[in-house]
């Protein structure tokens, strides 16, 4: 009964294909988020430390990093996808599928995430850094024992925003054969004009975004002590 109803309302939807595409999207998201955090967190910390009036103020280095981040952030992601193809092939051996999508996603999201990390660290009270210095803490100890734990709610919020940005990026990577729900939406929903496929993929993406945001917000509250 329900199956026939689904078939009537959504004649073009191939649920197995939707299942594979969803899995691809989750894999792309998981893989790219992991590498974005691994690369973006140190970059954000470096941006913070070398920034104006900070622990390791380095005008030249900060200017250079800042420029690099701004350049990468100002390249439209669609263009970045195409520009990255040779490098992607070099790293993963292919520019297609989940593996081919992850490098451009990471390169697109890392500068964005690093800026959010920098901002989150700036929110930490300077007095805390001074207290740690007065205790005789090394810079590494200040970062790991005070700055990162104090900024944790802000960092979780940054990861949430980045994950959601990555969801919309994965949809674009369909353009270069990246697979996933976005790819499905473009190929079936748009190019073959199958609005039911379009609707299902968009709803699934919406659910994913909603789940990410809710989980992120819950974690922020859980780790907030203020």
């Amino acid at each position: 009964m329900s199956e026939s109803l689904l078939a009537t309302w959504l004649p073009n939807v191939d649920w197995q294909e939707i299942g594979y595409a969803s899995l691809d999207t989750l894999n792309m998201l998981g893989g790219s988020l992991l590498f974005t955090v691994l690369l973006g967190l140190p970059l954000g910390v470096l941006l913070f430390l070398t920034g104006p009036r900070q622990l390791f103020e380095q005008k030249a280095l900060y200017g250079l990093l800042s420029l690099l981040v701004n350049v990468l952030r100002s390249v439209p992601f669609v263009i970045l996808l195409i520009l990255m193809i040779p490098l992607t092939v070099l790293i993963t051996g292919t520019s297609l599928g989940v593996a081919g999508a992850i490098p451009p996603l990471v390169v697109g999201a890392t500068p964005f995430f690093a800026r959010l990390v920098e901002t989150a660290l700036r929110e930490v009270d300077r007095g805390i850094i001074e207290a740690l210095q007065a205790m005789g803490a090394s810079t590494l100890q200040i970062i790991t024992r005070a700055l990162l734990p104090e900024a944790l709610p802000g960092l979780i919020a940054a990861i949430t925003v980045t994950a959601i940005t990555l969801v919309s990026y994965t949809a674009m990577s369909g353009l270069i054969g990246g697979g996933g729900l976005g790819d499905l939406a473009v190929r079936y929903g748009y190019q073959r004009y199958q609005p039911d496929v379009m609707a299902v993929t968009v709803i699934l993406l919406l659910v994913l975004v909603q789940v990410l945001q809710t989980a992120g917000d819950k974690l922020v509250v859980h780790f907030s002590r203020k």
């Binding site: 009270d125 007095g127 805390i128 001074e130 207290a131 734990p149 104090e150 780790f223 002590r225």
Partner: peptide, 10 residues
């Protein structure tokens, strides 16, 4: 310190 400078997360 005047504003205590305790770690809120600990």
């Amino acid at each position: 310190f005047q504003h205590f400078n305790l770690l809120a997360s600990k």
